[in-house]
Amino acid sequence: KDKDLLKGLDQEQANEVIAVLQMHNIEANKIDSGKLGYSITVAEPDFTAAVYWIK
């Protein structure tokens, strides 16, 4: 199951987060929520590491 990592990002921010996570071998998903911006989700086992790397 995926957990929400970040919400309300613009496309550039979302792409930067995806890139950082991929560099650390964390699979992440970018979801277009329309006017609400983009959300990033990661698998539950990767959540703690993902939070660490996006600081």
Rank of each mutant, 00 (worst) to 15 (best):
K1I: 11
K1P: 09
K1E: 08
D2Q: 15
D2G: 11
D2L: 13
D2C: 13
K3N: 04
K3S: 05
K3G: 04
K3D: 03
K3Q: 07
D4P: 14
D4W: 15
D4H: 14
D4K: 12
D4G: 09
D4C: 15
D4A: 14
D4L: 15
D4M: 15
L5I: 07
L5G: 02
L5R: 01
L5F: 06
L5C: 07
L6H: 02
L6D: 02
L6G: 02
L6K: 03
L6N: 02
L6E: 02
L6I: 11
L6R: 03
K7R: 13
K7E: 08
K7S: 12
K7V: 13
K7T: 14
G8F: 10
G8Q: 04
G8E: 05
G8W: 07
L9Y: 03
L9W: 02
L9H: 01
L9M: 04
L9G: 02
L9S: 02
L9K: 01
L9V: 04
D10N: 13
D10P: 06
D10V: 05
D10C: 13
Q11I: 13
Q11D: 12
Q11C: 13
Q11V: 11
Q11W: 13
Q11R: 12
Q11E: 15
Q11F: 14
Q11L: 15
Q11N: 13
Q11Y: 12
E12K: 12
E12I: 09
E12M: 10
Q13C: 14
Q13I: 06
Q13N: 04
Q13W: 07
Q13M: 09
A14S: 03
A14E: 02
A14K: 02
N15Y: 07
N15K: 07
N15S: 07
N15P: 01
N15I: 07
N15E: 10
N15Q: 08
E16K: 13
E16W: 15
E16L: 14
E16N: 12
E16S: 10
E16Y: 15
V17L: 10
V17Y: 11
V17M: 10
V17D: 00
V17Q: 01
V17H: 02
V17A: 07
V17K: 02
V17W: 13
V17F: 10
I18D: 01
I18C: 07
I18T: 03
I18M: 10
I18G: 00
I18L: 10
I18H: 03
I18V: 07
I18Q: 03
I18E: 02
I18A: 03
A19Q: 08
A19N: 08
A19S: 08
A19W: 12
A19E: 07
A19M: 11
V20K: 07
V20R: 08
V20A: 06
V20N: 05
V20E: 05
V20S: 04
V20H: 13
L21V: 01
L21Y: 00
L21R: 00
L21T: 02
L21G: 01
L21A: 00
Q22Y: 11
Q22K: 14
Q22P: 00
Q22E: 07
Q22D: 04
Q22R: 14
Q22L: 14
Q22S: 12
Q22G: 07
M23Y: 10
M23R: 12
M23H: 09
M23W: 07
M23E: 08
M23F: 10
M23D: 05
H24F: 07
H24T: 02
H24E: 01
H24N: 05
H24Y: 09
H24S: 02
H24A: 06
H24K: 04
H24W: 06
N25Y: 06
N25Q: 07
N25I: 04
N25W: 06
N25L: 06
I26T: 02
I26H: 00
I26Y: 03
I26W: 02
E27H: 14
E27K: 15
E27M: 15
E27C: 13
E27D: 11
E27N: 13
E27Q: 14
E27Y: 14
E27S: 14
A28K: 01
A28H: 05
A28S: 06
A28D: 03
N29L: 11
N29P: 01
N29D: 06
N29F: 12
K30Q: 07
K30Y: 07
K30C: 13
K30N: 03
K30W: 08
K30A: 12
I31D: 03
I31S: 04
I31Y: 07
I31P: 02
I31R: 07
D32L: 11
D32C: 13
D32F: 14
D32P: 08
S33G: 15
S33F: 15
S33T: 11
S33V: 11
S33M: 15
S33C: 15
G34V: 04
G34N: 04
G34E: 04
K35W: 10
K35L: 12
K35S: 11
K35A: 13
K35H: 12
K35G: 11
K35I: 13
K35E: 12
K35V: 13
L36M: 11
L36W: 13
L36R: 09
L36F: 12
L36P: 03
L36G: 13
L36D: 12
G37M: 07
G37C: 09
G37R: 06
G37Q: 05
G37I: 05
G37K: 07
G37N: 03
G37W: 07
Y38V: 05
Y38T: 02
Y38I: 09
Y38A: 01
Y38C: 06
Y38E: 00
Y38Q: 00
Y38H: 03
S39N: 09
S39A: 09
S39T: 15
S39E: 05
S39M: 11
S39F: 10
S39L: 10
S39P: 00
S39K: 13
I40V: 09
I40K: 01
I40W: 02
I40Y: 00
I40G: 01
I40C: 03
I40H: 00
T41V: 10
T41F: 08
T41N: 04
T41S: 08
T41K: 07
T41Q: 09
T41E: 04
T41H: 06
V42F: 02
V42P: 00
V42M: 02
V42W: 04
V42A: 01
A43S: 10
A43G: 06
A43V: 04
A43N: 08
A43Q: 09
A43F: 06
E44S: 08
E44Q: 06
E44H: 06
E44L: 10
E44C: 08
E44V: 09
E44W: 11
E44M: 08
P45S: 15
P45K: 15
P45T: 14
P45Q: 14
P45I: 14
D46I: 05
D46W: 10
D46V: 06
D46E: 05
D46Q: 06
D46N: 07
D46R: 03
D46S: 05
D46G: 03
F47R: 03
F47W: 13
F47G: 02
F47D: 00
T48V: 12
T48E: 14
T48K: 12
T48C: 15
A49E: 10
A49Y: 07
A49F: 07
A49V: 06
A49S: 08
A49N: 09
A49H: 06
A49D: 08
A50Y: 04
A50G: 03
A50H: 02
A50I: 04
A50V: 04
A50R: 01
A50W: 04
V51Q: 13
V51I: 12
V51L: 14
V51D: 06
V51E: 11
V51T: 08
Y52R: 07
Y52T: 05
Y52Q: 07
Y52D: 05
W53Y: 08
W53N: 00
W53P: 01
W53G: 00
W53L: 07
W53K: 00
W53H: 05
W53A: 08
I54C: 05
I54D: 01
I54K: 00
I54H: 02
I54L: 12
I54T: 05
I54M: 06
I54S: 04
I54A: 05
K55S: 12
K55C: 15
K55H: 12
K55E: 13
K55T: 14
